[in-house]
């Protein structure tokens, strides 16, 4: 977990595959890269077996670029589609049992603080809606109530896509799926409200049809989690297989859903605003200067 692990061992350089050599020489480690530079540097994410045109893959790709210090980051995941890509990256990945990813991340985050002290080591949980809101719900909520300092990202595809299309807590009411032929009878879980009640310092919803916004949201969430408390991002990452979205219409669907039920929302606690402003120079939370008093008609 440092720049030392992203280099060649003496004498082995000529035996390493091209992808590895590109990663060492032109990867994002130790540099600042942004989404606008995509296509010009070697990304930490490699080839993976996720479906063609998957919006979740795009989100994961953007997330990996947005990590403030990829060389000092560990990702934690659980069963679900996302882990197929998250594990194929030059970032250490811990695979928990189904649903215990926030428990694993709690221990990991505390252990790293004991070992490395104030040196930032970021832990980022990326799990699906089933892993976060259904099977891992108890551990997710408890980690938030304990104010564990790591980021939780829900890859919300609104279905159990990996096992044939069962409804999840995050599926919309009335949705008919292959393994839920009668349609879901309950409302979509309001995880955003629960995150706020549980005391998360940063809560945001995002859709990957705006790469710069994804980048900004993830950077803020990871930075706040270093010192202030738990952070939560809920990302709409459609399953084009289970919802039968043609692959070339995935971004059109993302735009429609963003306008319908996934508008960008961002909650930042006062403590987190102060932390971002003072520690990392964010200007968006500074108090705006008071508007000049409106002129009174008829008076000079």
């Amino acid at each position: 977990m440092s720049l030392d692990y992203v280099k060649f061992s003496n004498g082995f350089e000529k035996f390493m595959p091209k992808e590895y050599r590109d990663m060492v020489e032109h990867g994002p480690f130790g540099k600042k890269v942004t989404v606008s530079q995509m296509g010009s540097f070697k990304e930490v994410l490699e080839e993976h077996p996720m479906c063609a045109g998957c919006a979740m893959t795009l989100f994961i790709r953007l997330a990996m670029i947005a990590f403030p210090n990829p060389e000092d980051t560990i990702t934690v995941g659980t069963a679900g589609c996302g882990r197929l890509a998250i594990s194929q990256a030059a970032i250490p990945f811990v695979y928990g049992n189904y649903g215990d990813q926030n428990g694993v991340a709690s221990g990991l985050s505390r252990g790293l603080r004991l070992r490395f002290g104030d040196k930032p080591k970021d832990v980022v949980v990326m799990a699906g809606d089933g892993g976060t809101a259904d099977i891992g719900f108890q551990q997710v909520l408890h980690s938030w109530f304990r104010k564990e300092r790591f980021t939780t990202i829900m890859l919300d595809n609104e279905v159990y896509g990996n096992t044939g299309g069962q409804e999840s807590g995050m599926t919309n009411r009335g949705a008919v799926l292959k393994m839920a032929p009668l349609g879901k009878k309950f409302e979509k879980m309001d995880m955003l409200q629960m995150a706020k009640v549980a005391g998360c310092a940063y809560v945001a919803t995002v859709v990957p049809n705006n790469p710069r916004r994804v980048e900004s949201v993830i950077k803020k969430a990871v930075l706040i989690a270093r010192e202030v408390g738990s952070t939560y991002i809920q990302a709409y990452t459609s399953c084009n297989i289970e919802y039968a979205i043609p692959t070339d219409k995935v971004m059109e669907d993302a735009k429609t859903v963003e306008n319908d039920r996934y508008q960008f929302t961002e909650y930042v606690s006062e403590e987190a605003k102060q932390y971002l402003t003072e520690r990392y120079g964010y200007k968006e939370f500074l108090a705006k200067p008071a508007a000049p008093a409106a002129a009174i008609p008829g008076k000079a």
């Binding site: 995509m38 296509g39 996720m50 045109g53 795009l58 971004m251």
Partner: peptide, 8 residues
């Protein structure tokens, strides 16, 4: 380059 789901 920003919207392709596949890296590089």
């Amino acid at each position: 380059t920003q919207y392709c789901p596949e890296a590089n």
